[in-house]
Design a protein around this nucleic acid. Structure first.
Lengths: 190, 190
DNA sequence: GTCTATAGAACGATAGAC
DNA sequence: GTCTATCGTTCTATAGAC
């Protein structure tokens, strides 16, 4: 080992996203990240005090980038949320289950908290409303269907070779469109 | 240790579901299952040759029970699929990501394959169609939204104390209703 | 059919050399 | 700031006693 990197911190984050995209949180480990970069397993601990803080930094970047992707999507509104979510998360492996991972709740990282707050705020602004509660439900449903497609895709339920990401995005957007289409009657489960 | 069980095999399956419901696949391990039952970590290997075969048996039971729950749901059709899926999977922890886990693909277990085949078959029969392809897409979307709600719920995105399972089920069913409502125009993403 | 004991691997994290 | 080396833990799986 003789790796001298200019910015190991950034490299660790990039490698973390690679690992997450390939195998999800299950395959993520500090050791694996270090291995991928050709540095010792101790090196990451110079930049992050422990595994949780590394994941927290990953969460912050994921939240920031996801928000940016949503705002840049020409579809706009919740359709942009669904489309950008599926496309981003399939690529980075870091969707809500990583961004809001339970193991991060107790990690005091102001930067992460600021980025996740901004993300949620943006999501709510993109929902048509009319009430705050209703907007929240619309965001919920949109993220749920997008995350659902991502989960099934990443777990191999779709044949990833025969279903390109673009098709997956299209299906999620189509589902999101149906979810918020006006004229339907939201009533009980009976 | 002095545990003599009449049917350790069944107990191992039950304990596996408990673990999955509490912590998902991440917290599942043969050792943890044994620990929960108060038996030695070697005991499970008398009933299952390895971890993959234990999980395969879990998958078979999950597929069978999920199919039964769907068929027993008075809502019928894809609404029953969404409702029963959310309710069952929140309780058992074993949804599609477990039933069709990638690590099971190479495990030759005829019983599991038969149960999963029957499940898929039932799902397709419940979709309104009209074409086979369209039915498949409808099932996909329904499972995606149901799995999405489950994922967000289990990852703690919802406050599990303030959102009872019944509410979660209701929201998923409502979303599924929107997904298959007639009159909408399935077109491209533009 | 369950136990004790153990081998071997992966991981989180730390100490100390450089 | 990275390395080597190491400790303690958890896990999968096997061997052998009972």
């Amino acid at each position: 080992m003789s790796y001298h990197h200019g910015d190991l911190r950034s490299a660790l984050l990039a490698a973390s996203f690679e690992l997450l995209a390939e195998g999800g949180l299950a395959k993520f480990s500090v050791a694996a990240v270090a291995r991928r970069l050709g540095v010792s397993s101790a090196a990451p601990y110079r930049h992050f005090p422990d595994r949780a803080h590394l994941l927290s930094a990953v969460s912050a970047v994921a939240a920031r980038d996801l928000r940016a992707a949503i705002l840049a999507d020409p579809a706009g509104g919740l359709l942009a949320v669904a489309g950008a979510y599926v496309r981003s998360v399939v690529r980075t492996g870091a969707g809500f289950p990583v961004i809001f991972a339970a193991e991060l709740y107790a990690v005091p990282d102001d930067e992460r908290r600021e980025h996740t707050r901004a993300l949620i705020s943006t999501l709510l602004e993109l929902a048509p409303g009319p009430t705050h509660t209703e907007a929240f439900r619309q965001v919920e449903a949109t993220i749920a269907v997008a995350q659902g497609y991502v989960t099934l895709y990443c777990e191999g339920f779709f044949d990833s070779r025969s279903v390109p990401v673009d098709d997956l995005v299209a299906r999620a957007v189509e589902a999101a469109r149906a979810l918020t289409q006006p004229g339907r009657t939201p009533q009980g489960t009976a």
